[in-house]
Design a protein around this nucleic acid. Structure first.
Lengths: 145, 145
DNA sequence: ATAAAACCTAAAGCCGCTATAGCTTCAAGA
DNA sequence: TCTTGAAGCTATAGCGGCTTTAGGTTTTAT
């Protein structure tokens, strides 16, 4: 099949397929006489795996490792387990930080009386030197799509 | 004060201050005889405002608008309120998506028996053609720091 | 006087794609 | 067979919000 068919079957864009080839998640594709990429079902399965893993929020580097493991079915799966657990922890940490943020925002919005800017609780909170959040989300691969 | 003092008082990096000047969040700084930036307390307050707003997860564009409003204390604060409310909604949506993701990950991890890769539930779920998440997080300014 | 620390500019890198520009090849209909 | 439009190709730039690097200048402390 061509790259368009592959992409639509895997649920991603054509450029994304080329990008994955470029960064080595997919092997260099076979080409037809006119230099266009041709794919088999094995590549479709690989791409589907990649997309699922990305949908789960795994980073490209994690996907690379998971792919490496999927390629060796006879090996123990401890490492896959560890990667998934670590990712779960990161997601949970992110949820916690965002929840704290949500609470602060809620309080802020609730206290805005809707008058002039100089009476506005929103602007006030942001101006306040004392206020500190430290809700640091040093987000890694947070674009979960 | 110099840029280092300013940055440390506002709790950010020196380069970030220069970056904010470059994108127009901070006005072009005064310079001393040796071309080094000098700041007053008004700029420190402005930078602190910016950092707080960023800590709250507001995008730079939103911060730009909020700053514009903070500069006009006599205007009505409807728009500040609207920006904050919209941001709150986005944060809540993000939490929901991440929570769904967390549940999926938990299930996945719980089902891994710790054997070989070809029996591993983690690899299996990712390989499965049927599985779909659609937990799309088309994250805007999600790096909350 | 000297050395270390802080400062300067300009440009590239990060992540994971997405979009653009300017071409070539393919497939279907007349 | 010819034509047209869709799909494909490569290379490069752009997104957000900084961070890092390179290579230089100025300030500050001893």
């Amino acid at each position: 099949m061509g790259i368009g068919t592959l992409a639509s079957r895997a649920g991603c864009q054509v450029q994304t397929v080329r990008y994955y080839e470029q960064i080595g998640l997919l092997p260099p594709a076979m080409r037809n006489a006119g230099n266009q990429r041709r794919y088999d079902n094995a590549t479709l399965r690989r791409l589907t795996f990649i997309r699922h893993a990305r949908d789960f929020g795994f980073s490209v580097e994690a996907v690379r490792e998971l792919l490496g493991m999927a390629d060796h079915p006879d090996m123990p799966c401890d490492h896959a387990d560890a990667i998934a657990k670590r990712h779960l922890e990161e997601v949970e940490a992110r949820i916690e930080r965002l929840s704290a943020l949500r609470d602060e925002l809620k309080r802020m919005v609730a206290q805005c009386a809707g008058g002039r800017v100089d009476e506005c609780r929103i602007v006030e909170v942001l101006s306040d030197h004392q206020q500190c959040l430290h809700a640091a989300d040093h987000g890694g691969q947070q674009t979960i799509r």
